[in-house]
Design a protein around this nucleic acid. Structure first.
Lengths: 197, 197
DNA sequence: ACCTGAACACCGTTCAAGT
DNA sequence: ACCTGAACACCGTTCAAGT
């Protein structure tokens, strides 16, 4: 189940120069997206990577395909974070609080990332859909643990929890707040899904 | 306090042809934004209004200035909705539930509107900032009423409530859900801010 | 098999020339 | 005082020519 992360994905091996271009493009994209946000110029990314624009398009036919490739290790980080929380044995409120905080951190890859992940959540045609499924599964796991502990209100659905925490993430991202400023909103969510007392 | 809404804003009167162009541009913008979302082509809007692109820029030097003009009656609708809820005499939960639902509806003017309002919320330099202030004041009023009724948890801040409901609105908008599908998320917010029992 | 970069298209923005 | 539309700049996207 553990994939080879050092090269492309799980595809046929690339020619040496192509592999280098591929890696350079992803690195350049990370920089550019961090600096400029989700609308970063693809031409600029190609320039930073030292390749022609055609090469970028060869490897990544769409902007989303490039973003998807940038997020390779992201899914693994998500899995690790959710597993750590479930294994921690912490009480439900603390466990969920940590998980939500990690959620907001992880989804804030660059300006506009939270919104992009959100649109992909319900769109199976999006290249990022798979990544969202990983996030959904991780969230489901943490919420299920809290439910087993008898801590959740009746009718609380993991999917809705994921949606609302994504919403909080978008607020942080779009309003230019720091991740720490998500805390009051996350407190509302916690009180909203946990049984009182 | 009630403004003349049939012409420009509260500015000097425009020459007759300029006023017609101004109105046509706003109408064209409403159509275009509804169809194409927040990134609608300005050139296309000018064409729809039957004017040159220069005319659009004369009246609205930035995209946000045009959006702000489109939202003229919006602020009044917000005010009316919040007042109606406060005057209704409904119990806090029902009142807030109706207000939040209206909030989500109102902020979903076109695809991308919720995110735009959110970014303007904490940015006094945005042309839309004033409109956000109106929304914030209306929300404050409804939340204050619930607090007077002794229905709110300690430490619940109207600003945070506005942020999280804006977040819910963005989820609806970005994920292509219907406003009705906000209900489970709004239920979480309600349980999160109201005193149990 | 992969890369380059010129070429095209589209759109935002400005401004000189008009009325 | 206001409008027009040509002109420019920037960027996404394609593709013929190269290695």
């Amino acid at each position: 189940m553990t994939a080879d992360v050092s090269t492309q994905t799980a595809q046929k091996p690339l020619r040496a120069d192509a592999q280098r271009n591929y890696d350079n493009l992803i690195e350049a994209a990370r920089e550019a997206f961090r600096e400029r946000g989700a609308e970063a110029s693809l031409d600029d990314i190609a320039k930073r990577a030292g390749v022609g624009p055609g090469t970028l398009y060869r490897h990544f036919p769409t902007r989303d395909a490039l973003i998807d490739a940038m997020m390779r290790d992201w899914a693994e980080r998500i899995d690790a974070d959710s597993q750590a929380v479930v294994d921690s044995g912490l009480p439900a409120r603390e466990a969920l609080q940590i998980w939500f905080t990690r959620f907001v951190d992880n989804i804030g890859l660059y300006h506009g990332a939270a919104a992009k992940v959100m649109s992909a959540m319900d769109d199976p045609k999006s290249p990022i859909y798979r990544k969202c499924q990983v996030l959904a599964a991780a969230n489901e796991k943490v919420v299920a643990k809290a439910r087993e502990d008898g801590a959740l209100r009746d009718g609380v659905d993991a999917r809705e929890v994921m949606r609302i925490v994504s919403g909080v993430s978008t607020v942080i991202d779009q309003s230019g707040l720091t991740p720490a400023q998500a805390e009051p909103m996350l407190a509302i969510v916690l009180d909203g899904i946990l049984l009182p007392d």
